[in-house]
């Protein structure tokens, strides 16, 4: 890897795995040539979250995302449909050795819900998994 390789795969592997990895690398290449590091935008019910411009659209309304909220949403989106532990979220936002940020994390999640949920007390997209972390459900792309 240190000599300039992008990725490696140990045999035995499945052809599909190889194809997926190749696709990932190609995607990265094309993105970086046309629009460098273009971040995705996705739809959560009525809301459209545009991570590239860090804005949440609803109809004509627009709400900006703070840096921390943006980082959290990005991490959740990358693992959409999967539980992301609160430790992993803290590490993504505050870096290594982020013990003790759990309460701060809860506040930030609350703020995000206020922006992307119709009823922040009964979240539909950003779910809490008790004792573990959070999960982002993206129904349509």
């Amino acid at each position: 890897m240190g000599l300039g390789a992008d990725d490696y795969i140990v045999k035995p592997f499945l052809p599909r795995e190889l194809v997926l990895r190749l696709m990932a690398i190609l995607k990265r290449m094309y993105y970086s040539s046309s629009a460098p590091e273009r971040l995705p935008a996705f739809k959560l019910g009525e809301y459209i979250v545009d991570l590239e411009s860090a804005i949440v659209h609803r109809n004509t309304e627009e709400q900006p995302l703070t840096a921390k909220e943006h980082a959290l949403l990005l991490k959740l989106y990358e693992n959409q449909g999967r539980i992301v532990t609160s430790d992993a979220l803290c590490q993504a936002v505050w870096g290594d050795d982020s013990y003790g940020y759990e309460n701060t994390l809860m506040v930030h999640i609350r703020r995000i819900r206020e922006k992307i949920e119709a009823d922040p007390s009964k979240p539909l997209s950003l779910l809490t998994v008790r004792g573990l972390g959070y999960k982002l459900l993206v129904k349509e792309q």
């Binding site: 539980i83 532990t85 609160s86 992993a88 004792g131």
Partner: peptide
């Protein structure tokens, strides 16, 4: 951290 990670892996 390890405990949460293991549990979420299994759930995921």
């Amino acid at each position: 951290v390890i405990a949460r990670q293991v549990v979420s892996e299994f759930l995921n």
